[in-house]
Design a protein around this nucleic acid. Structure first.
Lengths: 312, 312
DNA sequence: CGATGGCGATAGGCTTTAACTATACATGGG
DNA sequence: CCCATGTATAGTTAAAGCCTATCGCCATCG
């Protein structure tokens, strides 16, 4: 019993004439005749009474035809579902973002992505890079936004933008008079940092190797966010380093805080998208990439697809 | 897209492993692999993400698998319907009976048929032979009970029993003293007959050709039934001829009426079953035949299947 | 870092099947 | 009794479905 057989069956039930039904199915009369006969043998029931005068459907035949129509209807739904779902911009996209990007990027990204792909709801998770990577490989996430370097088997990575680091000082801090801060000087100051697991912490320490064992009091704040640290800087607890998009999220600034760029070579991080090589909805990823690049993030520089890896 | 493809699809969705799914389907791994690939091409969607680690179903794939399961379920119903309907004694049987048999046969036939085939409800119609024949050919009836001769193209006829005719006299009628009445004498009396269209009328006239232009008053009663005529005989309106099963339907008889057999050669009618040659439920017909033969019909003689045609 | 093993994809060959054309067969009607 | 109509059968060819063998990829392990 195949779907083709069922199509022949309902055609014959409608036409009550082998020749006409065959024509409607675009096959020859013997083809349909044989198919019906085989179907009757397989089901071991007589579906039609044939006579020279006409073709009558049996009682049991009518019931089976009704069921066959149901089957064909449901089968047709499969094609419809496929057609509807062929658009990579339809259906939810599970997006993961690291903690030090999410709060600054998402408010811009979400409305832009929604405008570009209205029927693609975003299911968003913020987490550490490692957790996002696991979820991505498991299939719990489709795309993640992370900072490079990020290399995982079976995962492709595409750089999106470079984001310079900034120094955040409390108002009235001695360095306020300086236009640019050399990274090496961070070791002198009490530096407030995120806890382990945050890639940004490691990137800052990489930009200023002296900080690891520096003279300045380096304070690690487990369970904190960049916003918490910003408040602590404002109270004079120390200084910190922020990605530029986080340095001045509120236009107009905060009078208790001062932001200073680094002296060249400016440390920065390269932010990238990552997804499973096998992930089929590349169109959805393109939309996310475009929405990110369209977001007004303070100080970031778009990266061409083939750009070199960042220094730090 | 075939039902086989859909079976492979749901197997793979369950197993998430081409080899295991193939095994469950009793095919080789390449077979399943190719089938899924072709299905994906036909639907133009990626149903699974393959990687060395494992097989993940896509979002759209999951929806299609759910629909495929629905299709397979409905398709399975077809086999179930066929199995349930394979029994010729299941499902309604549309039975037609001529007016001069129905009232005497059906009260016996119905309970017997129901006992023999409890899941075969009888849909019964009484009518003239010609109307029954039309309905039978149209398919509105499945089997009919008629009197021979009855020949129609595409219809097979099977004799069931012979039924002698009886003379019905009002009590006190002059012929009451005679044991048997010669058919020829009917022409002498006022004979009450059913209207045209009733085959029994013709059969009586054939048994007594003189009656057509006989000396006795021959009264044709349009729209009447044998029961009506019986009542008229009781009131002395004339005499009539009845099939034996109708002559004394109530055991104990009616004191106003006298029944007399004919003198030899006794006129009789041969009652038969008829159905379309193509009708597949021969088992159902056998049940009806057996139920008729089991019915206690006054004076009837069963006819073997190969019996000669009746004289009249 | 090369070897190994698991797993899906591909290639080549065979068998089955589903389609066609041509024709036989059955039946009711002139 | 032959003809017209309609279905079943025969015989052939093309396609499909399936199998075995093998490749290629990746991940793991010594």
């Amino acid at each position: 019993m195949t779907l083709t057989d069922l199509r022949y069956l309902v055609a014959l039930a409608r036409e009550r004439h082998f020749g006409h039904a065959a024509e409607r199915c675009n096959v020859s009369q013997p083809t349909l005749s044989v198919a019906i006969k085989k179907l009757e043998e397989e089901l071991a029931v007589t579906l039609f009474e044939r006579s020279a005068a006409d073709v009558k459907i049996t009682d049991i035949g009518a019931r089976i035809v009704a069921q066959a129509e149901k089957v064909l209807l449901e089968a047709g739904q499969i094609k419809e579902i496929a057609t509807a779902g062929r658009d990579p911009l339809s259906g939810p996209l599970k997006l993961g973002v690291i903690y030090t990007i999410g709060p600054y990027l998402l408010p811009h990204l979400i409305p832009r992505a929604h405008a570009a792909a209205p029927s693609m709801p975003l299911l968003i998770q913020e987490n550490y890079t490692a957790r996002l990577a696991e979820a991505l490989k498991r299939g719990d996430l489709d795309v993640i936004v992370v900072a490079l370097p990020f290399e995982e088997p079976g995962i492709v990575t595409q750089a999106v933008y470079d984001e310079p680091f900034r120094v955040l000082l409390p108002a009235g801090h001695g360095w306020e008079s300086e236009e640019r801060i050399p990274a090496s000087r961070l070791a002198e100051a009490p530096l407030l940092l995120l806890g382990a697991g945050n890639c940004f912490r490691d990137q800052v320490l990489e930009a200023c190797p002296l900080c690891r064992s520096g003279e300045g009091l380096q304070r690690t704040l487990e369970g904190s966010s960049l916003e918490t640290i910003r408040h602590m800087v404002a109270t004079g607890a120390g200084i910190t380093v922020l990605p530029s998009a986080a340095a001045d999220p509120l236009p107009g600034g905060n009078s208790l805080l001062t932001v200073r760029p680094f002296a060249a070579p400016e440390p920065f991080r390269r932010v990238a998208l990552a997804w499973r090589v096998t992930y089929p909805r590349s169109g959805a990823i393109d939309v996310i990439r475009a929405a990110i690049l369209d977001s007004p993030l303070q100080g970031v520089k778009p990266v061409g697809r083939g750009s070199p890896l960042p220094v730090g």
